[in-house]
């Protein structure tokens, strides 16, 4: 676990400073493939019970493994959340936006500027918002509930609607 966190923060600092390396470092955080390899090499982390509440308010409970990202879980467990993880965990979109309880939010790893940049484009942004691809399951999260922002009629925030052009 500690190792994985290290790897992640390393990735962040490399991306921020070594511009040329952007490409390769982003690929490393792609959770669908590489991240898994990373995990299987290390000890089989403990199991943690998590609850996801999707756009329709449906609660889905799953057993997750320590070290997986919340995006990994949604994809691997095939949870019904529309359009989740469009960029596949490369910090290039905000479709894995999740909302946490305050007590949980405060214990999460600090958020990087790049994640905030993407969150700023998310609809339904709250103070307790994070991107699921950047939140890694830890044992203390057992029984935590995370929410997908409600599907609203017009999901564009005014700022975002004006973005392109």
């Amino acid at each position: 676990m500690a190792l994985r966190v290290c790897v992640r923060s390393l990735i962040f600092s490399t991306r921020v400073q070594l511009w040329r390396e952007t490409l390769s470092s982003r690929t490393v955080i792609r959770p669908f493939s590489r991240h898994h390899e990373l995990q299987s090499e290390s000890s089989p982390g403990s199991k943690v019970l998590l609850h996801f509440v999707n756009q329709n308010g449906t609660k889905m409970s799953v057993m997750a493994t320590e070290g997986e990202s919340l995006l990994d879980i949604v994809i691997n467990k095939n949870l019904q959340i529309d359009g989740f993880g469009a960029c596949e965990g490369t910090l290039a979109c905000s479709t894995c936006h999740l909302i946490f309880d305050e007590s949980v939010y405060e214990r999460l790893e600090p958020v990087a500027d790049e994640e905030l940049d993407m969150l700023d484009l998310a609809y339904g942004l709250t103070k307790m918002s994070r991107l699921g691809c950047q939140v890694i399951v830890a044992p203390w999260m057992n029984d935590m509930t995370v929410r997908v922002p409600l599907g609203v009629k017009d999901q564009r925030v005014p700022q975002e609607a004006k973005n392109k052009q």
């Binding site: 359009g83 469009a86 979109c93 905000s94 479709t95 484009l121 609809y123 999901q155 564009r156 975002e160 609607a161 004006k162 973005n163 392109k164 052009q165």
Partner: peptide, 11 residues
């Protein structure tokens, strides 16, 4: 013609 791909996805 505004918004990112995620906006296009939602609409």
């Amino acid at each position: 013609p505004t918004g990112v791909i995620a906006t296009t996805m939602n609409d």
